[in-house]
């Protein structure tokens, strides 16, 4: 599994309130959520994001409330992967459970700037900065994690397993 896209670069402590402001939580429709994704930190995000693009941020990405709406909004906006130095624990679980690929890799975060073209190979755990011609090693996804991502989240992954049997 590989993804490629342009980088949106953010700093420390991007919280769930700026990822999707609470005033829009009266819906759980991914498209509607995506229309307001990152609105309070980066009003141009929604205008500029293209399918496959990648978010790169420093420490503690996704801190704040436990709302699953946050990773859902990011995923529905077309973002293919979030790379951060560290993630808040509940955001981490929620992202994987809804099928948004995320990676922790401090070196990569340091070596990537806004607008860089980046490619991520989840099987090998390699993050390539194509603009700068550099590469970084992250931990590859284990087999079960790739399956959860391929199935678009934990609920579907388990449903597919039942269908197979």
């Amino acid at each position: 599994m590989k993804v490629k896209g342009k980088v949106f670069r953010y700093q420390n402590n991007v919280d769930t309130d700026v990822i999707i402001p609470a005033r829009y939580l009266n819906t759980s429709d991914p498209k509607e959520l995506a229309a307001h994704c990152m609105e309070d930190i980066d009003p141009d995000f929604v205008k500029n994001v293209k399918p496959g693009d990648i978010i790169v941020a420093d420490r503690n990405f996704g801190c704040g409330s436990s709302r699953e709406h946050a990773p859902i909004a990011i995923k529905a906006s077309g973002i293919s992967c979030v790379i951060a130095s560290t993630f808040a624990r509940i955001f981490y679980r929620n992202a994987i459970n809804i099928g948004l690929p995320i990676l922790e890799c401090e070196q990569a975060v340091k070596g990537i700037e806004a607008g860089d073209e980046v490619e991520v190979d989840f099987d090998a755990g390699i993050i390539r900065n194509l603009t700068k011609g550099t590469a970084f090693k992250a931990r590859p996804f284990p087999e079960f994690m790739k399956k959860i991502m391929a199935a678009d989240g934990l609920v579907n992954y388990i449903r597919d397993k039942y269908k197979d049997n």
Binding site: S66, E68, I90, R93, N94, N97, L154, V155, I158, K161
Partner: peptide, 13 residues
């Protein structure tokens, strides 16, 4: 402690 999705998956699998 985990979320309810994890608990649901845990009960199933």
């Amino acid at each position: 402690g985990v979320g309810s999705t994890d608990m649901g998956a845990g009960m199933a699998t």
